[in-house]
């Protein structure tokens, strides 16, 4: 019998110190939307600090799998049912004891369309921080420092430092998407999930975003869903290919693209469908 370890979520720091090799460990996960089964016994292991790309044709379940890791699928209500096991840093995240708020603090998410909140740039960066550290007092200086660090980290500081009080929705899409990454950083997430983060951006902005994502890995484990094959190839270390709700192949990006083991992967990569 597998021993069930439910460490309280306050001991995340301890978990960080033990060098677990895996950031995300998905085992035998199946997921149903009502009667429709979207995922079939999916396995996926993501190493800490790595960038893993999830590729596959539309409707293959890659976004669903991504959203299983921070349990965003559950927004849709009871008709979503998940079985199997998902561990993040060795902790069982599908357990009933997990507080979604704590899970999502440690597993941040970037969406397809940039979705800054209708607040100032500064308040956007501090949003998660204020939610999760509401008990502690921070003075203005400390908050300013947090904002500056986060914005510097996503290479946005120089562009917006003079208009931190402005509405974030007034920024360009590229800036908005960078801001959406920046606002995750103050609460020090372990994993950042990205759901086609560049699909709303023009090629130049896409390149800038990819550069940033590449720059962030190492400190953060990044799992990124992409439609863009070239992007997976350029900006990931490992690639996982899904088809019709099943994990077909997972390996080092180079190998997936140059010498895929499965016929389905090869066909997709060469553009025979998708």
């Amino acid at each position: 019998m597998k021993q069930k370890t439910i460490a309280p979520w306050t001991t995340w720091k301890a978990a960080l110190v033990e060098d677990t090799a895996l950031a995300i460990d998905i085992q035998n996960v199946s997921l149903w939307y009502g009667d429709f089964q979207a995922l079939f016994e999916v396995d996926l292991q993501v190493k800490r600090g790595s960038i893993t790309a999830l590729i596959g044709p539309s409707g293959c379940g890659k976004s669903t799998l991504l959203r299983a890791v921070n349990r965003m699928n559950e927004r849709l209500g009871d008709y979503v049912r998940t079985t199997g096991e998902i561990h993040v840093l060795d902790q069982d995240i599908l357990s009933d004891d997990v507080e979604l708020s704590q899970l999502r603090r440690h597993v941040g998410m970037v969406f397809q369309r940039p979705n800054p909140l209708p607040l100032s740039i500064q308040d956007n960066v501090l949003f998660a921080h204020r939610i999760h550290r509401a008990d502690e007092k921070f003075n203005k200086l400390e908050e300013d420092e947090i904002v500056e660090n986060a914005l510097r980290r996503v290479l946005l500081w120089d562009e917006v430092k003079d208009r931190l009080g402005r509405e974030a929705t007034g920024l360009s899409l590229e800036e908005q998407q960078k801001l959406c990454i920046a606002r995750l950083l103050p609460v020090k997430p372990t994993v950042i999930l990205m759901d086609e983060p560049t699909s709303a951006l023009d090629p130049k902005a896409t390149a800038a975003l990819e550069e940033l994502i590449w720059e962030l890995h190492g400190d953060y484990t990044i799992l990124i869903v992409t439609h863009n094959m070239a992007q997976a190839r350029r900006a990931s270390e490992e690639t996982a290919f899904m088809l019709l709700g099943r994990m077909v192949e997972h390996g080092v990006t180079e190998q997936i693209f140059l010498a895929p083991q499965e016929e389905g992967t090869a066909d997709y990569i060469e553009g025979r469908y998708g």
Binding site: M72, R75, P118, F127, C180
Partner: peptide, 10 residues
């Protein structure tokens, strides 16, 4: 907006 805030753990 709701989705964004929920994804940050609100």
């Amino acid at each position: 907006y709701r989705e964004a805030a929920e994804a940050m753990g609100a």
